[in-house]
Design a protein around this nucleic acid. Structure first.
Lengths: 174, 174
DNA sequence: TGCACCTAGTAGACAAGTCGACTAGGTGCA
DNA sequence: TGCACCTAGTCGACTTGTCTACTAGGTGCA
């Protein structure tokens, strides 16, 4: 699965707890992958049993212990292999497009309500992505940094394409 | 779930067997939804037990019986409600972007191999979408037809955005 | 004083999706 | 003659993903 590889990728940058990972998934990684908390913890413990990660317990004062997961050499190797392996099958799935596909029987106004909704989520997504892009705009770009920003720019391009498509639909809708 | 609604949407156009549905999912609907065969048959039988669809067995000569699933009035009502209900949560998930995000440690040539792969699949997808769009290009557009083509144009816009992004990455990659 | 929210993690049930195998006949081809 | 592929469908095992609830203390605020 891909989740374990994404987790390995994040652990390769810095050791993390399940809790830390969940935050990464909800912020910096959310434009291309998402994960449920329970799923993250389950995957983490599998990485440990598979020898791809190791746990170090870090005691804290006033806070619960941190189970810091460190990537192992085997983990780095697995990650490296995945990066250059055959592409994972990817199925597009978009419930909004599913509605649009079948919305021929709706009133014009109902369809415009759907597109207006979509426009709002697209615009707020665009703002999030732009905000994430902003800090490093003029920074010296290492390759790693360039690649991370590239995924953001990918998201931005797609959101913009979506907004232009919405313009068209709202204009041409018979 | 969305699958049952997509199936209802397809049954609303014409009665179909699980087999027919599978073909639709692999051709005309595949740019926004996909489904496994077993999943389709399971969902169909749940639609029947829920009273949203009915089965008519059609005998054939030389071929297995067809279990034609017809949408019921209740099914149409359910579909209609879904079309205008609150938008389904939608999480973007793209394994390719996941790789790109973590590919900072790869060689330049390895990254270019990834993008070249992506370009190939994007281009063949574009051709498929254009081929699907072609037949009705100048047809008299009913609203239903317009909406179906709109989803195709959506896919085309996104693929084009992807190709432009690939151009950029391949050009700027440090 | 109580409520909401933060850190950190566990547990269990359930829904959704995937994969492979199996039945069973029909057609086309080399 | 045998193989591959088509129509039409069933079954079981398994993996992923989601949701809810729980423990247990700490902080901030009104």
């Amino acid at each position: 699965m891909i989740l374990s590889h994404v987790i390995l990728g994040l652990l390769a940058v810095a050791p993390m707890t399940g809790y830390d990972l969940k935050k990464r998934f909800d912020t910096s990684v959310n434009h291309f992958w998402s994960a449920d908390k329970a799923q993250i913890y389950r995957t983490l413990s599998r990485l440990v049993t598979d020898g791809l990660a190791e746990v170090k317990i870090v005691r804290q004062i006033g806070l619960p212990d941190r189970q810091e997961h460190h990537i192992t050499e085997a983990g780095r190797a697995t990650l490296g292999e995945w990066l250059v392996s055959a592409p994972d099958a990817h199925r597009e799935r978009d419930p909004f497009l599913a509605r649009i596909f079948f919305s021929g029987t709706l009133q014009r106004s109902e369809i415009l309500a759907l597109t207006a909704q979509r426009r709002m989520t697209a615009e707020s997504l665009l703002n999030e992505l732009l905000a994430q892009l902003a800090p490093g705009e003029s920074a010296p770009q290492t390759r790693a940094e360039y690649m991370r920003f590239a995924t953001l720019r990918n998201g931005i391009s797609h959101v913009r394409a979506e907004l232009e498509w919405l313009d068209e639909v709202e204009k041409d809708l018979p």
